[in-house]
Simulated assay, not measured.
Amino acid sequence: MIGENLDEYAGLTVVVFEEDTGEEAPPGPVAWKVATEFDEEPFPDVWKRFCATADTAAVSALVIGYWGASYDEHHHYPVPLLVESAASFPNLRALFLGDMTYEEAEISWIEHEDISPLFRAFPALERLDVRGAEGLSLEPIRSESLRVLRFESGGLPAGVVRAVAASDLPNLEHLDLWLGTENYGGDATVADLAPVLSGERFPALRRLGLEDSEMQDEIAEAVAGAPVVARLESLSLAMGTLTDRGAEALLAGQPLTHLRELDLHHHFISEPLQERVREALPGVEIALKKARRDEPYIEVSE
Rank of each mutant, 00 (worst) to 15 (best):
L6K: 01
D7K: 03
E8C: 07
A10E: 09
D20A: 07
P29I: 04
A31Q: 05
K33A: 15
V34T: 00
E37K: 00
P44Y: 00
R49P: 00
T53C: 02
T53E: 12
D55G: 03
T56Y: 07
T56F: 08
L62G: 11
V63N: 09
Y66H: 13
W67I: 10
W67T: 12
S70Y: 13
H74R: 02
H74M: 00
P80D: 08
P80V: 12
P80G: 13
L81W: 08
L81C: 09
L81F: 09
S85G: 06
A87G: 05
A87S: 15
S88V: 04
P90L: 11
N91E: 15
N91W: 08
I115F: 08
I115P: 11
E126R: 11
L128R: 10
A133I: 13
L136M: 11
S137A: 15
P140K: 05
P140L: 03
S143V: 12
L146W: 00
L149H: 11
E152W: 15
E152Q: 14
G155N: 01
G155H: 06
L156S: 01
A158Q: 11
A163C: 12
A163R: 12
N171V: 01
W178Y: 13
G180M: 08
E182I: 06
G186W: 01
G186H: 03
D187F: 00
A191S: 14
L193V: 06
P195Y: 09
V196M: 05
L197T: 02
S198I: 02
S198M: 14
G199M: 08
E200R: 13
F202P: 12
P203F: 09
R206L: 04
R207N: 12
L210S: 05
E214F: 09
Q216Y: 03
D217G: 03
D217H: 04
I219L: 06
A220K: 00
E221A: 14
A224T: 06
V229H: 07
V229C: 04
A238P: 10
L242S: 06
L242M: 04
G246R: 07
E248N: 10
Q254H: 10
E261R: 15
L264K: 05
H265L: 04
E271R: 15
E271S: 07
P272D: 09
R276S: 07
V277T: 10
R278Q: 15
A280S: 15
P282R: 08
L288D: 10
A291P: 12
D294G: 14
P296E: 02
E302L: 01
